[in-house]
Design a protein around this nucleic acid. Structure first.
Lengths: 207, 207
DNA sequence: ATTTAAGCCATATTTGTTTAAGGTTAATTA
DNA sequence: TAATTAACCTTAAACAAATATGGCTTAAAT
């Protein structure tokens, strides 16, 4: 993720190690553990760590064992980074979407991509978004919101049925468009937007 | 069935402190910090921590500073269900795929979809799998394995370059096929399979 | 009545970990 | 050319933290 080019190659390697170590273990590494990993001496690690800190990629706690804090995404606490969000099934007209009996499972997602409980997942049914690379059975992760921009892929409520479409906005009106020539755009029916698709997930059969 | 023994009130307080400290800081507390919090001595903390460990609520790393891991049985279900796996970038020929400097970030995935550290993610480059709904920039989650079945989407090493293709197997030979008519199948070059694609993820731009 | 466990204390020792202070070399930049 | 910077080194010292013993009190359990 194009970490600002400020770090040298070696510094970047070391930062990555600190990060990965902190994910694999419940605590950050010691300077010595870093030295061992890269087969360099303690003094050299001091130099690197100091440089990385000066450039703002980690925070150091003086005189504290394992006193690191990585200050960029991919941080320390896996727990703090992951959320479980419910997968809802496609709903038949009239049925409430967010009913608990409609929950098919859960998926994890990175926290902080937004605040709190504003995401859900929906299993796609049908081929209407095929040309946008969204297939039957795929799961989309949705951020709840009541409006969206022209061109956004949204989940809309149409006659009480949740459907995935592309939102089109002209100066005159807003309408929904399928990404499949076999479906025609929905021009003259009222609809409510319930969220914007921010991610697509597709499982492949696991042998 | 050795049901986890219950903690005493004091032990629970201490466990809670360790947990909270680990959330508020990028590392767990030291025994001394616990002692200070509860205004008790180091020796007493040793006793408590030993008891809590014996009852299975934390794991201790001997001779390791801040060497705690909270493993509350029962609680914390959500956290225990998620794993962070690294995203590797597409690699140029010759470069090692699993090098740390090639890590672009991390994604969460449900734990236990398999054992341990056998998954990684790869950012797809190119259009060769477009007809299978896998686009440039997509992320695939890969389970490491050295063979796969006919029809599986796999990551293969071709001339030291990681590539995403469909594996085809006939009675006579195995070969790789792109899902895009503009690419032709790779019939007569040796390749190694490094994993099978089990999930696809695509991010949509977030306003 | 004896044992056991929880909670507490104190002191000393060992090991882990960070910090300090000096240096070398090669490559880059002013 | 002189000055800087990255990357490496060694050694010593200071501090942080875990471990090892041993002992004390009270309440509950055998």
């Amino acid at each position: 993720m194009a970490r600002a080019k400020k770090l040298t190659e070696k510094q970047d390697l070391i930062l990555n190690f600190i990060e990965k170590f902190s994910i694999d273990n419940p605590f950050p590494p010691t300077l010595k553990e870093i030295a061992e990993e890269f087969k360099i001496t303690l003094g050299t690690v001091q130099d690197h760590v100091f440089a990385i800190e000066k450039k703002g990629f980690i925070k150091r706690y003086p005189d504290v064992a394992r006193g690191f804090k990585v200050t960029r995404p991919g941080d320390n606490k896996m727990q703090d980074m992951a959320d479980m969000i419910p997968i809802y099934g496609s709903v038949a007209a009239g049925d409430p979407i967010f009913a608990m009996e409609n929950i098919q499972g859960y998926v994890t997602m990175e926290k902080n991509r937004a605040g709190h409980k504003i995401h859900f997942a929906l299993r796609i049914k049908g081929e209407s978004m095929k040309d946008a690379g969204i297939y039957d059975g795929d799961i989309v992760i949705v951020r709840k919101q009541e409006d969206a921009d022209n061109g956004d892929v949204v989940i809309a409520l149409l006659d009480d049925e949740a459907t995935c479409k592309t939102l089109k906005k002209t100066k005159i009106k807003a309408y929904l468009e399928a990404a499949n020539p076999r479906y025609k755009a929905i021009m003259n029916r009222p609809f409510d937007i319930i969220g914007k698709v921010i991610e697509l997930r597709r499982g492949f059969s696991v042998a």
